[in-house]
């Protein structure tokens, strides 16, 4: 921005007179300055600033500013593209386990598990989840991708890894009566690579994938 000094200010070598403190102005004047400037900051930073951001955001970027809500084919608002939600039907891809309580994926009360790596409860929960995934699909015998057995930081992770989605393909395809190769291709279409090639991990948005699956299968899975 300003690699070279401007011409107007006096150069440092001109030795301006050194400032001397003036006598104090008293406690009341100091208190007045503190109270008035806090009140002014409240108006400027607490009201005008967020309202200005809200105004511009609502006019220019209304979709993002209101939560990136997703509307299904039948017109229902089925959630936010950015916020995970629970899926338990075998015919849907499942997201990661969620630590929000008491309901999983509670978008009104985000929470992580905060289980330490050394906590036996973590290993026990992961083992149970491995068993659950295996029971739902006896053909899935390979190692389970880590994201499917660990809870996210928010309890609202909208994504799983591509490996986590591919792991579930046979279960979903059987439940839907679809060709596994077709479902696998659908997963591949929904893989988002790291941004710019290096930011973040590859991922699949579970809600978008399941909406596409409903379109492919011609409706929601039988419950």
């Amino acid at each position: 921005m300003t690699a070279h000094p401007r011409s107007t200010p006096a150069p440092a070598s001109s030795l301006p007179p050194e400032p001397a403190a003036e006598p104090g102005v008293g406690w009341l004047a100091t208190l007045r300055a503190a109270a008035v400037l806090l009140a002014a900051a409240t108006v400027l930073c607490g009201l005008l600033y967020p309202l200005a951001v809200t105004g511009v955001a609502q006019l220019a970027l209304p979709e993002q500013a209101n939560g990136s809500l997703v509307t299904a084919a039948d017109g229902r608002v089925v959630g936010s593209a950015l916020v995970g939600q629970p899926f338990t039907a075998p015919g849907y891809f499942w997201g990661r386990p969620s630590a929000t309580s008491p309901l999983p994926y509670d978008a009104a009360a985000s929470a992580g598990s905060n289980l330490a790596a050394s906590n036996p409860a973590l290993a026990a929960r992961a083992a149970a989840r491995v068993g659950e995934l295996r029971a739902a699909d006896p053909e899935a015998t390979g190692p389970v991708p880590a994201d499917l057995v660990t809870t996210s930081a928010s309890g609202l992770d909208p994504d799983i890894s591509p490996a986590g989605a591919l792991f579930q393909v046979t279960r979903v395809a059987h439940a839907r009566g679809l060709d596994p190769a077709r479902v696998k291709a659908l997963v591949r279409e929904h893989v988002e690579p790291p941004a710019l090639g290096f930011l973040g991990d590859p991922r699949v948005n579970v809600l978008r994938l399941n909406l596409a699956l409903d379109r492919l299968a011609g409706g929601p899975p039988a419950r």
């Binding site: 973590l122 491995v130 389970v144 991708p145 880590a146 996210s152 928010s154 992770d157 994504d159 799983i160």
Partner: peptide, 22 residues
């Protein structure tokens, strides 16, 4: 456990408890 924590083209891997995939 039979859990795959390794990084590859298909997953970031690592200690994912308490972390977001994105």
């Amino acid at each position: 456990l039979a859990v795959d924590q390794g990084g590859s083209d298909l997953q970031g891997g690592g200690n994912l408890e308490g972390k977001e995939v994105r």
